[in-house]
Design a binder for these strands. Structure first.
Lengths: 192, 192
DNA sequence: GTCTATATCGCGATAGAC
DNA sequence: GTCTATCGCGATATAGAC
């Protein structure tokens, strides 16, 4: 199991740095200090490595992206969640950078993403519903909830890429700007 | 000049449909009904074709994305502009789908994009400034202007990809949802 | 301007020894 | 589980005839 994980972390580093296109299985093997044959013993091909990395990301999301279970969420809870989310995303920057292209190229990966997304998206809508019922938010119009969810999703999945594209560093400051953006979108609905 | 344009429109169709990765110069030549050698007479390589397509897109933006020059912009003018913008974007879907990856792979393309973006981004800020001066918007805090510009940019550049990723059709209805989203973000600042 | 033919290269993937 | 060796393939790119 040790080698398998070593391959994954090596591949992750290369993908983040150069993009999945420019990185071949040979490059990964060389950087990992193993033979190409050995890499193929552990993974059928590059797509399978990418899928495994996505599974890692997804697992981290499931574990780390939790609101406090025993009380209603506050705006600060939400902010902490957003920060955690961006931090995880940055570790797997290549996935979000090449999102649509990866999904287009690998239907299996797309399916895994759609499942995860459905959980998150409808979880978000459920959260809003709970908040509305508790009187914490005045957001009840379904169309408005959809719009809010769409905007939040856009920020979550594309803010880091947007920084990259525009030539701005994907550092802590850039990350904070994303958090700030998200909070400004959300705050009006938390007017208690 | 005829063949060159024919190659470009053929390549555009293939790229939009299958992604730049899956499409080789041979595929383009075959689909265009010419020989690979002929393609290389007109373009040095695939990157050059992509750059030429980006130049087309950029030119269309410059021509079609204009607010009325002789009077102050209304919210309806802005909506028309947003609609035009999405329409152009959809024609060149592959570029936005693979945005960060393309920019990372080709510094020359990235440079061209950064120039175009700077024009648009600062043009947007200038527009806000004009509106503020005319009393059409109450938006004067620079940080707030930046946030608004950032959100609008995110919607512009990533809404179509977001539709694709989430498995929703990139049709007129999806496009209208993007316009709707953008207008809901902008409208508060147009409270006349 | 366009074609055919071809050289080169490197990636993906497998077989078989250890 | 890991290595070495290697095959087949297809993509990029060029040369030279027409």
């Amino acid at each position: 199991m040790k080698t398998k994980e070593h391959i994954l972390s090596t591949a992750l580093g290369l993908f983040n740095q150069k993009g999945t296109n420019a990185v071949t299985t040979n490059h990964i093997a060389e950087a990992a200090g193993i033979s190409p044959g050995n890499l193929y013993y552990h993974f059928r091909n590059k797509d399978e490595i990418i899928r495994a990395l996505y599974a890692q990301l997804s697992a981290r999301n499931d574990v780390e992206l939790q609101l406090p279970p025993n009380r209603l969420a506050t705006i600060d809870d939400v902010q902490a969640l957003v920060r955690t989310n961006f931090t995880i995303l940055r570790d797997y920057a290549f996935i979000y950078r090449e999102f649509a292209a990866l999904m287009q190229a690998d239907p299996e990966l797309h399916k895994a993403y759609l499942t995860a997304r459905a959980r998150g998206y409808f979880g978000f809508r459920a959260l809003i519903a709970v908040l509305a019922q508790a009187g914490i938010t005045n957001l009840s119009d379904p169309a408005a909830v959809t719009r809010l969810a769409d905007i939040c999703w856009l920020i979550t999945e594309f803010w880091l890429s947007s920084l990259e594209i525009s030539g701005q560093p994907v550092d802590d400051a850039g990350l904070e700007r994303g958090i700030d953006l998200m909070m400004h979108v959300l705050r009006p609905y938390f007017a208690v």
